[in-house]
Computed example of a mutant assay.
Amino acid sequence: MRWSPFALVALLKQSQAALRFGCGTVTIQRLDPVVQSNVSPSAHLHQVVGGNAFSPNMTGDIGNQGTCTTCTFSEDFSNYWTAVLFFKHTNGSYKRVKIMENDALPAGINGGMTIYYTQQDFNSNGNKKITAFPPGFRMTVGSPTQGKDGLTKHKGLRFTCLDTKSTRFPEIDDFPKKPCKGGLMTEHHFPSCWDGKNLDSPDHQAHMYDTQPTGFAAGGACPSSHPVRVPQLAYETLWDTAEFKDMWPKDGSNPFVFSYGDQEGHAYGTHADYMFGWKGDALQRAMDSSCMFNACENGKPLKSQSVAQMNACKAKEFVNEDHEGWLKALPGMTA
């Protein structure tokens, strides 16, 4: 996020209901209960955070399923997931890139992502009613089959070449062309206008509409077809690409590839999935409050838990598959 110290001061004075919190990795496996429900294994590997009820087929109120969550807020049993990043060696083998915690979050979180639920924008909060997602709600953003035009149309799918974990700009629409000293950050911003009727749609996107010109920015009014303003949901994932800084191809070509197997070497197919799972009215209480980031913890108004409790939570392994070390092919792909 591109905040100057002056902008942050203004943000704290004006904004309401902005959640930013960490969720550790609950599982890394080939499952996708939104796009490939009841399929095990799914087509490609995902890194998943949130509630431990994650499984090939998930229906009903996810907030009432599972026994733990890897998220800071212990009332959040939602699941959030993205494709996994791999390094492709010049010899044709692959190695999964490790995930780092954001330095704005408590230290020691096991991989995972930084999750945001914010108001319409960071400048005129309080003048729009933000409606929490209902039980059973799910959506996706991006697609592993989209071309460059997909990223051009949706400004919320971006990458940042990190100098340090605090770097937040510039945002670019493809993999960096050179090694990044502090790693790579992937960013996924979801649309924030809902049709108010459908918990999902055949393509998992048509029930939503995007009015954001870019990631964290003032959004336009929701259209009559999608009149309900829901929280602006966003993920940030930090990948420890620095491990491979001395292995870049001599021709300077990009050596990273997502788990869906984009062999052209670009990142246009970046995508993310979301399945709502907050308990009761917890998210609505947060959106109706004036709390900001970690000030929302410890019952003000949301219950929170320790990093040790977050890291102790794990989902069941349904796919017995090795994705550690150097691999001859991406999981689910042929060499």
Rank of each mutant, 00 (worst) to 15 (best):
E321M: 06
K129I: 12
K128V: 15
W194R: 04
K197F: 13
C23D: 03
A329Y: 14
A18N: 13
W248R: 08
P56F: 03
T67K: 00
E324P: 10
N123K: 11
W3E: 10
G22Y: 10
N38F: 01
P134Y: 02
D103H: 03
K155D: 09
A217T: 15
A272I: 06
S253M: 05
K155E: 09
W239T: 09
Q16G: 07
S289I: 10
G332E: 14
E75Y: 02
T211M: 15
L184H: 04
L85E: 03
N79S: 06
G183S: 02
V230Y: 07
N198T: 15
H266Y: 00
W248Y: 00
Q205Y: 02
K314Y: 04
I130K: 13
N57C: 00
D203L: 10
K88R: 12
M247V: 02
K129P: 06
I130Q: 14
C291E: 13
A329C: 15
F73M: 13
N198Y: 01
H189S: 01
K300H: 01
V49M: 13
G147F: 11
S306V: 11
F256Q: 09
H204T: 05
S290R: 13
C71Y: 02
A267M: 04
K197Y: 12
A315Q: 09
P231C: 14
N320D: 11
A272C: 05
Q65N: 08
T69N: 00
H44N: 08
A83R: 14
G299M: 05
G50R: 05
F159Y: 08
H188Y: 14
A308Q: 09
Q65T: 11
Y80E: 13
L330I: 15
C291Q: 12
Q65S: 10
P255A: 06
N198E: 04
G332F: 08
S93T: 15
G182H: 08
G265H: 02
V307N: 03
K98A: 14
A234Q: 13
D103R: 08
W248D: 03
Q284F: 06
P202W: 07
M113D: 12
W194L: 00
V84G: 00
T214C: 02
G269K: 05
F87I: 07
H271N: 11
D163P: 09
R158Q: 11
G142N: 06
G299S: 07
D200C: 11
F133R: 04
T70G: 10
C71D: 06
L19R: 13
L283W: 04
T334C: 09
V39H: 09
F122S: 13
F21V: 14
A282R: 08
Y94M: 09
N52W: 01
H323Q: 01
G182D: 03
A132V: 03
N91L: 14
K129T: 15
F54W: 08
E324G: 09
D322C: 05
L12Q: 10
T214D: 12
K245D: 05
F190P: 07
Y274S: 06
W326G: 06
